[in-house]
Design a protein around this nucleic acid. Structure first.
Length: 703
DNA sequence: GCGGACTCTCTTTTT
DNA sequence: GAGAGTCCGC
């Protein structure tokens, strides 16, 4: 392995106390953090388990540990590492009762969160059109990020509906269900640290050093969590790059990294600006793009490599042509000896993968899509776990309501409501309540009774199977059979997922994991692949993924599709304004800096969106790029294209011209047909869509 | 309560 | 254009 460079070494061996490591893309950030931990253990004598490394994904945590073991041997595995959520969960499992929760509480994932909010809205007869569930969730999350419990939340109304009351109901419902949502895990640790001096002392003295990766993506609550955790010793090392902050929309605040030294005045600052990943040409483009953002730590990435080949920009006809163009370009690199697995196609929005998939399948090029619905978020997986958790005494009302009518047994919304309130007022846990239903003889729950009996009776066999009754309950309840009704292809993939889950359950139980711990894993692990350890297994495929997903990864060859106004920057960001646009620019920056050797950006002249056609312009982020930094072979200055048109009239309109119509408003010319008085133009109006107009009568004005 | 027809919406998503 | 959510008649 190469030795650390000067800046990396200084950072790795910096003294105790707060340290800010500003690590540009590809500057060896993970290596530096690993060496710092290694240094703390090997040279400074800190005990591995008293060092805490916080990451944003479980995968990153696992990778950190294994690389650490490589560096310093077995001790590396002893370091405490995890995500904010998994570490918080561990703490809450120990101290939950101090906040009135049972230690067996479970986690409410995003999907269940939405279900719960919808149920609350429905109970109050609030039309979800007047008050979007996602708006309510967003507001509640916002409060939690600011450490505001329902009682402390501001009186906020929307369409006359009092949001604080909804927050209160939601939080009460969570408490009754004995569940915490993702934010609660962190918020409740913060509450312990603030409110319970003895527990705070215990937690704070548990770690001698805390290190955080991807610090630019912390939200205010996580920031508080760290500040309180390090309150006694200030031994906090944060690593990040403000230019790669792309989760502002989820509450991350770049200011935490920008203002780190204001919060910790004694902090040391280290800048890693030498990039080991990309060629000089790619970095030039990256620097051009990001330099236009205001409010950033001024820095310029320096390449340690040769200039390499110039990144290219290609204008394609539509998304299919774009896919073909990219496929051809990747094919050339493959022919040049680069394995498929070192190539990626990145895009702003997952929808863009559709056209790519079609074309790549036609061309027989191997690809796989990263992202989309995670393993544990799949419908059949959540259903199967609901059955299994009820069987194993860790299911709650949400699990029960989820499967009460699966397969169909004549229980509709009304009956579900009854089940819910009956269970609620019984004060029993869902499993106990089911036992009761199984035994009782009155007819009120007659439709549910067979299921209750089945679950109740199956309990006696749980301990006899390696999967704690998983396969049996799914078979006996008729759930597997009901999946088969979905049609062959659909059913097969779902059944396969269920089988994979069974395998994973068996494996985990054999390791001594309890069912409730398994449910934790299911809630905190986003993908099923990473749990098997074999993970990506690097098959010979091209990776398709969103720009967000690409953060932290690198590929020899990268194509970024759809570098257009409306897509990158996304239309929503354009509507939102300055800050959102800065984040979109960072997103492009992240994409560009994923590439080691070759980079291609593409745009489409026509793109199908929501069923109609869109004629996007190239992204504003590419406007001020010096010619020598970006190859644009067929720069399609729209007005320069041959147009069968009104070229002698001084009023000539050309494709791409922005125009104003007295009634339709502003729009862009898409096409010109005919000549003289018979000239027709098609115009894409921003508000009213596409119109074909006689130029003579349209009284269009050029904008 | 169920199934089919109809309507609406439509970024990104580490946990 | 697709998938989810909603409505309505049986």
């Amino acid at each position: 392995m190469h030795p650390l460079n000067n800046a990396q070494q200084c950072a790795a061996e910096a003294a105790d106390g707060p340290q800010l490591i500003l690590a540009g893309a590809g500057s060896g950030k993970t290596r530096t953090i690993i060496h710092r931990i290694g240094h703390l253990i090997a040279d400074r004598g800190y005990a591995p388990h008293r060092i805490l490394a916080v990451t944003f994904t479980n995968k990153a945590a696992a990778e950190l540990k294994s690389r650490l073991s490589e560096l310093i041997g077995d001790d590396g595995g002893g370091v405490t590492s995890g995500t904010f959520h998994s570490i918080s969960l561990r703490l809450m499992r120990r101290y939950a009762d101090a906040l009135g929760y049972p230690r067996t509480f479970q986690i409410l994932d995003a999907d269940d969160q939405k279900t719960l909010i919808k149920r609350i809205l429905k109970q109050r007869n609030i039309d979800s059109k007047q008050l979007h569930p996602s708006y309510v969730i967003g507001w509640i999350e916002h409060c939690k990020h600011a450490e505001l419990l329902p009682e402390q939340a501001p009186d906020h109304s929307w369409n006359k509906f009092n949001l604080r009351e909804l927050y209160l109901s939601y939080q009460q419902a969570l408490f009754d269900l004995e569940r915490m949502d993702f934010s609660d895990l962190i918020l409740n640790v913060v509450r312990l640290l603030r409110e319970q001096a003895d527990i705070a002392a215990a937690i704070q003295s548990r770690f001698d050093h805390v290190l955080v990766d991807e610090y630019q993506d912390t939200n205010p609550l996580q920031h508080e969590w760290l500040s309180l955790l390090c309150d006694r010793h200030h031994h906090l090392t944060v690593v990040g790059d403000d230019d790669q902050s792309i989760y502002g929309w989820r509450g991350a605040d770049v200011r935490h990294i920008l203002e780190f030294t204001q919060h910790w005045p004694e902090a040391g600052i280290h800048r890693l600006e030498e990039n080991y990943r990309s060629t000089g040409s790619i970095l030039n483009l990256a620097n051009d793009v990001i330099s236009h953002n205001p409010n950033r730590h001024e820095k310029t990435l320096r390449s340690t490599r040769g200039p390499g080949s110039l990144p290219g920009l290609l204008a394609c006809n539509d998304e299919y042509d774009e896919a073909k163009t990219i496929a051809r370009w990747l094919e050339q690199h493959h022919a040049g000896g680069i394995p498929w697995r070192n190539m990626a196609v990145l895009y702003r929005s997952n929808r863009q993968s559709l056209a790519m998939e079609q074309i790549f399948r036609q061309l027989n090029m191997p690809y796989r899509i990263i992202g989309g619905v995670g393993f544990f978020e799949r419908l059949e997986i959540k259903d199967a776990l609901a059955f299994w958790s009820l069987l194993n005494h860790c299911g709650d009302a949400m699990h029960l309501l989820r499967i009460a009518n699966k397969p169909k047994r004549g229980i509709g919304p009304k009956a579900l409501e009854n089940i819910s309130s009956s269970l609620n007022s019984s004060g029993l846990h869902a499993s106990q309540w089911l036992d009761m239903i199984a035994k009782q003889s009155d007819r009120s729950m007659s439709k549910l009774k067979p299921l209750a009996e089945l679950i109740s009776d199956s309990r006696s066999h749980i301990s006899m199977t390696a999967d704690a009754g998983f396969a049996a309950i799914l078979e006996d309840s008729g759930y597997l059979e009901s999946l088969k009704a979905l049609g062959e292809i659909e059913a097969e993939s779902r059944l396969e997922n269920v089988r994979a889950l069974q395998g994973y359950i068996e494996l985990s139980l054999a390791e001594g994991i309890t069912p409730i711990e398994f449910m934790d894993r299911a809630a905190l692990l986003q993908s099923g692949e990473s749990v098997h350890g074999k993970d990506e297994e690097n098959p010979e495929t091209i990776s398709f993924m969103s720009l967000h997903r690409a953060k932290g990864l690198e590929f020899d060859v990268v194509a970024i599709a759809g570098v257009e106004e409306g897509l990158l920057p996304h239309q929503r960001a354009i509507d939102e304004g300055e800050d959102a646009l800065s984040e979109e620019r960072r997103l492009l920056y992240v994409g560009i800096t994923r590439a080691k050797n070759s980079l291609l950006l593409t745009t489409a002249r026509v793109r199908r969106l929501f069923g109609d056609l869109l004629y996007p312009k190239p992204s504003r982020f590419l406007l001020n790029i010096p010619k020598e930094h970006l190859q644009q072979p067929q720069q399609p200055a729209p007005s320069a294209r041959p147009v069968s048109a009104v070229s002698f009239s001084q009023n000539a309109f050309n494709i791409g011209d922005d125009v104003l119509h007295p009634t339709f408003g502003d729009g862009t010319i898409l096409g010109v047909e005919g000549s003289g008085d018979a000239t027709r133009v098609s115009v894409q109006f921003r508000k009213v869509g596409i119109k074909r107009l006689m130029l003579k009568y349209a009284s269009l004005q050029r904008l």
